[in-house]
Simulated assay, not measured.
Amino acid sequence: MNATTPQIPNHLVWSILTTLFCCLPLGIVSIVFAAQVNGKVAAGDIAGAREASDKAKKFAMWSAIVTISIIVLYAIFVFAIGGPSMLGNSNY
Rank of each mutant, 00 (worst) to 15 (best):
W14K: 15
F59P: 02
H11N: 08
G48P: 05
A42E: 14
D54I: 13
G82T: 03
T67P: 05
G88C: 03
G27A: 01
G48A: 06
S90I: 13
Y74P: 04
D45E: 03
S85Q: 11
L20K: 05
P6S: 08
A80E: 05
S69N: 03
I81C: 07
I8Y: 01
T67D: 05
L17K: 09
C23H: 06
I8G: 02
T19V: 10
G82E: 13
V66F: 14
G39Y: 07
K55P: 02
P9I: 01
G82N: 12
T67A: 15
A64E: 09
L12P: 04
G39F: 08
W62P: 09
M86T: 11
K57R: 15
A64I: 07
L12Y: 03
A80L: 06
V66S: 07
A64S: 15
G39S: 05
C22L: 06
T19Q: 08
I65E: 07
A64V: 04
T5M: 15
I28V: 02
D54P: 10
I28S: 06
A64N: 13
V78Q: 14
N38M: 10
V78C: 08
P25M: 01
Y74R: 14
F33V: 01
T5D: 05
D45A: 10
S85F: 14
N89P: 00
S69M: 03
A64H: 13
V29C: 02
P6L: 09
C23K: 01
I70W: 14
F21Q: 12
L20R: 06
R50M: 09
I46F: 09
A64Q: 07
V41C: 07
V72P: 02
E51A: 13
K58V: 11
F59D: 02
A80D: 09
D45M: 13
A47V: 06
I16E: 12
A49P: 07
I70N: 13
I68G: 00
P25Q: 04
M1C: 01
T19D: 00
C22A: 15
E51L: 03
V32H: 15
C22K: 09
M61Y: 06
C22F: 00
M86F: 15
K55V: 02
V78E: 02
F59V: 00
K40L: 12
P84W: 09
L17C: 03
L20D: 08
N38H: 07
I70S: 15
V29E: 12
I68N: 12
M1V: 11
T4N: 12
M61S: 13
I81N: 10
I16Q: 09
A35Y: 11
E51I: 07
A64M: 15
I31C: 09
H11M: 09
I16V: 14
R50N: 11
N2P: 02
G88P: 03
D45R: 08
G88I: 00
A47M: 10
I46T: 05
A35I: 10
P9A: 00
L20V: 11
S15H: 02
V32C: 15
S90Q: 02
V32G: 06
M1H: 03
L87A: 09
